[in-house]
């Protein structure tokens, strides 16, 4: 048959759907109160974070339990550079945040991603723990007291900044992984590393590239988050609950899919806020995360997105990744 995909109707439906989502998101702030706007801003952030984690966890198949470290690196870099000693403006802090996160990802991922997935999982987890302890004792990070940032009291600014960052992450992943050579490299090494190598793919390099990309996006959201909340401390931006949420959002939505993490991120964040506003607390949220993981892995290995778009790929994805352990 022809080498071009001849799926015009499907393509048009998809383009219309995406267009509708973009317009809806762009005009949303005009129709909601500021409390709901905050939830929406958070939902965008978590959708973007899930999208970021999915690059290394879902596409490369290397499970990171340390993404909170990158979120924290972004948050602290922005917070520190915006203190009066430096007085940097917000957007100027993004570049060093991203560069630092990439450097750390290369240092952590370089040696450990050559090994089985379990080594990487443990190394990322241990590093995140260590970094959180470190910012707790250091002076320039504010210790346990944390850091305050200059307030910028415009909720719309943060909504649109998160929207642009989330959209850019999503489009970036879509272009890079679903529509470029890089995507073939990364998915090939996830499915069968020796086979990928035998086809000339430099798997160790591609793995670290995917980790660095994932880390950079995570740090970007950490930066925006710090400016948004105007106050950060070690637990709020480096606590393990950040990684936990990212992992569960991706599993819930659909590991290694383009839409799944965004869906999982939005749904789970709304659930989180609902529980918080109903019970005044999020203690029961953690057990709920646990139950969701168990249910998804057992009954819906391709995540919620598989209910919407039907078959996209094999059921073997999770077991394939676990096999790397």
């Amino acid at each position: 048959m022809a080498s071009k995909p001849v799926q015009t109707p499907k393509f048009i439906v998809r383009a219309l759907l995406i267009g509708a989502i973009v317009i809806a998101l762009a005009v949303l702030p005009a129709f909601i109160d500021s409390y709901t706007l905050r939830i929406a801003t958070g939902a965008l952030m978590w959708a973007g974070l899930a999208c970021a984690w999915n690059i290394v966890g879902g596409y490369a198949g290397y499970i990171s339990f340390g993404h909170s470290a990158f979120f924290g690196i972004g948050a602290y870099t922005t917070a520190i550079l915006m203190q009066s000693d430096f007085g940097a403006s917000f957007f100027v802090t993004l570049l060093p945040a991203i560069i630092l996160s990439i450097a750390v990802a290369v240092v952590i991922g370089g040696p450990t991603m050559r090994l089985r997935g379990a080594y990487f999982a443990i190394a990322t987890w241990a590093f995140a723990e260590m970094l959180m302890q470190l910012v707790t004792v250091l002076d320039f990070t504010g210790g346990t007291a944390g850091l305050s940032l200059p307030a910028y009291l415009n909720e719309f600014f943060f909504y649109y900044t998160m929207l642009i960052a989330a959209a850019a992450s999503f489009v970036g992943v879509w272009l890079l992984i679903e529509h470029s050579r890089f995507g073939f490299r990364i998915k090939a090494l996830r499915d069968d590393e020796p086979a990928a190598e035998s086809l000339g793919i430099r798997t160790n390099l591609v793995k670290v590239q995917s980790f660095a990309l994932s880390a950079a996006i995570t740090a970007l959201f950490g930066s925006i988050y710090a400016y948004w909340t105007t106050y950060i401390d070690p637990h709020s931006v480096m606590g393990p609950q950040i990684t936990d949420q990212m992992v569960v959002m991706v599993l819930l939505g659909g590991l290694g899919t383009i839409w799944g993490p965004a869906l999982g991120g939005v749904l789970l964040w709304i659930t989180n806020r609902y529980i918080w506003s109903t019970f005044g607390d999020t203690v029961i949220y953690l057990p709920i995360l646990g139950v969701i993981i168990a249910l998804v892995v057992l009954f819906l290995p391709n995540g919620l997105i598989s209910l919407l778009v039907g078959r996209q790929r094999g059921k073997e994805l999770i077991s394939n990744i676990l096999r790397k352990f």
């Binding site: 490299r185 998915k187 090939a188 069968d192 035998s198 086809l199 790929r313 394939n320």
Partner: peptide, 28 residues
């Protein structure tokens, strides 16, 4: 270039993508 004694296709990918993945480091 070689095949493997044990099956080693990219199992979450289509036949098309399996073949295209083999060309990423070549004449794309």
């Amino acid at each position: 270039s070689r095949t493997f004694q044990i099956p080693s296709l990219f199992i979450n990918m289509t036949v098309r993508d399996n073949l295209l993945a083999a060309a990423v480091e070549g004449d794309w």
